[in-house]
Design a binder for these strands. Structure first.
Lengths: 278, 278
DNA sequence: CGAATATTTGAAGTGGCTCAAGTCCAGTGG
DNA sequence: CCACTGGACTTGAGCCACTTCAAATATTCG
């Protein structure tokens, strides 16, 4: 039956299906740009012209499967990666091949805005889950930043928030135990998912395997598994097929010593600064 | 005798001493700004007018003793900290008071350029050693960035390099053992000192105690001590009174799996990008 | 259904931690 | 000039969080 439907479609609607797909890709790009703009507006005040400059960016939409490497260390890049859907990871690799993930980017993030000012990264970027991305030319982003100083500041600000998150991860890797690290990460990603409008903090689709989680938390797969099971009992954590659900979110936040200040979600915090730009 | 000299100075030269001091402070500021400019020029091409804008920045010079906290988490800041001499640390603090240092800044670094776009940091900043700093108003830096887009990019680029270093620390905390972490850190700081012109990579003044080193490496003081002693045998490391000397630097780099690519010292790497800005 | 990937479990090993002294050294006051 | 003090460094012994290795059991997907 399913086969029949497919044939029907292929036979009767092929030309219009191509159109539908082109239209769909364009829609996806717009969806991504809208998410990205919303992300910027969380922390930056932008005029109509400046918002338009973001929404008018063009890029190539692509679906990428888990594990696909998008950027390799020391290789120049000319496009920024806008995450439309899914999960993109920044990673560093040791000589023996072991990996450490140093950032995770969700829908609406541009995962290497860094490479606009520094086009040869020291890190790699891979799809951590099956994802939809758009590749946006650095030149276009740069042109927008030069034309609108407020956009340059918004981009700069975005990379600073990224660094703030990275600093928190560093602190946790250095000073927190496995349960705290896992709990903190789940709280953070949950919060970011909720803010991005793609899930609730206590119920979201992460798409990571436990092995990838291990690479993120600086642990082994085995120990991640044991820690997940411990949190299962402690806070009603369920982690199946990349879907994360938490019964007792406050308890999770307590175990993770989680305080979302470092995510810079408080728009007023930067208020005094906007005045002098616009 | 020493007392006598002091009295003589105080009695006879007091008025001119004040002048001398003012002049000296101004000299120190200029020295710091020159170092900072040199740092920017490592990675960014700047016109004469843009260089001038940096050198004309004004700020208050201050001597700060080890341990002095300069910025506290969640507290708005209005000045950036330019390191003229010494060592400034960015840190995060756990609930139980244990610290993790997430960045070290040496002469010529501005240790919180981040707070220009994001004036409420999630981290703290302290003097890790007795240091000389200059406090430069965010407004002045921002004005320069708005007037000269190339400066905005240079600042942005500087925070991205900072993030690249942070990502490397994260990777090492997550995946490297104590000896590797220590060796890598010493290689990195040595390289940066050498580039900044304040020491050789195998002989420089760090100014950190082993306890602070522990907070940087995510270890305990005891274990840092044992690791230092191990490297003493392996590579002829001497670590006394904050002075670091290494007999066999290549061996240290090998133990630390050190590759300085992430420091973005290769000016040509960003070449393609300059064209489109200037 | 079969192959590959992901999760779970057990048992033994170890790198780094904790706790507890003790030494070295620079600075301070008498 | 010395005794005192506090900070930094060093050392030892026992312990534990996490790793390693090895294998069994889901789960996903073509």
């Amino acid at each position: 039956m399913r086969l029949f439907v497919f044939h029907l479609r292929a036979a009767l609607f092929w030309p219009s299906y191509v159109e539908w797909k082109a239209c769909c890709l364009s829609r996806l790009l717009d969806e991504g740009l809208n998410r990205f703009l919303a992300r910027l507006l969380l922390r930056s005040e932008l005029s109509v012209a400046e918002r338009d400059a973001i929404l008018r960016l063009r890029g190539r939409v692509a679906e990428v499967p888990r594990g696909r490497e998008l950027v390799l260390p020391e290789r120049p890049v000319e496009q920024a990666i806008l995450v439309i859907e899914g999960l993109i990871a920044r990673f560093d690799q040791m000589n023996d091949g072991r990996r450490q993930i140093t950032a995770l980017h969700i829908a609406g993030d541009v995962s290497d805005l860094h490479s606009v000012p520094v086009p040869v990264p020291a890190w790699g970027i891979e799809a951590a889950a099956n994802s939809t991305i758009a590749l946006i030319s650095h030149d276009d982003i740069r042109a927008a930043a030069v034309k609108f100083p407020a956009l340059a500041f918004a981009f700069w600000r975005d990379t600073v928030v990224d660094a703030s998150i990275l600093a928190k991860w560093t602190a946790n890797l250095g000073r927190a135990d496995a349960a705290t690290r896992l709990a903190h990460l789940l709280c953070e990603i949950g919060t970011r998912m909720e803010v991005a409008g793609v899930g609730g903090r206590d119920d979201f689709s992460l798409g990571l395997t436990q092995a990838q989680l291990a690479d993120t938390l600086g642990l082994t797969t085995v120990h991640v598994n044991r820690t997940v099971m411990a949190l299962r009992n402690l806070v009603g954590l369920s982690f199946a097929g990349g879907r994360v659900q938490v019964d007792n979110w406050p308890a999770l936040a307590h175990i993770g010593a989680y305080d979302d200040g470092y995510l810079m979600l408080d728009k007023d915090a930067a208020a005094q600064e906007w005045a002098s730009i616009s």
